[in-house]
Amino acid sequence: MSSEAAPNQGSWAARNVMSGPDIDRALTRIAHEIIERNKGASDVLLLGIPTRGVPLATRLAAKIRHVEPDAGGTDLLGQLDITMYRDDLHHGPVRTVKSTVIPPEGIDDRIVVLVDDVLFSGRTVRAALDAIKDLGRPRAVQLAALVDRGHRRLPIRPDYVGKNLPTSVDERVKVNLTEIDGTDAVVIAQPETQDSGPVVPEAGQ
């Protein structure tokens, strides 16, 4: 879950770690891994976590359908807003609640694959697990992330990873997607000067 705020843009040295074709290849591989791991994709339901998990899930769904045209039955794709399940609602600005879209017949007995852009502390995933619990009882929940940047604070691990990206805590990882940002790229930014006091790690950045 990426936040929109990116203060001090000027003092951050950014470098590209994944290009558009890199992202596309990673998603193609993840799509095949999902099919392989689940021995087909007939029960799979991809749930993108807004904001950038949603276009990623949409792309994964298209790739899975390309291989298995009847994957997921009528609904292979949904989205899961976790805002109201966060444990940090008392901090920062008021967060906009986004839509949750699940199949009309529910998520019971489906294999839910959560899709997010950056996996960092694991708190978003924890919130997502709570949200899923209120929606139904899936057969299994799996986790796909385009980037795993480490520094987990909860016992959570991804099942499908686009790229493992070793980072330091004060760096920021930003996923740009054409649907939202106009371009496909994963950018890692680090502060050029360390003398401006302790840097608070930003959400997914």
Partner: peptide, 23 residues
Amino acid sequence: LYLLLTGESSAGTAAHPTGKENS
């Protein structure tokens, strides 16, 4: 209730020092 009771201004008491970490 959601809009008035969440967010920074609603914290009232001790603000969390590193409140924004999340992913």
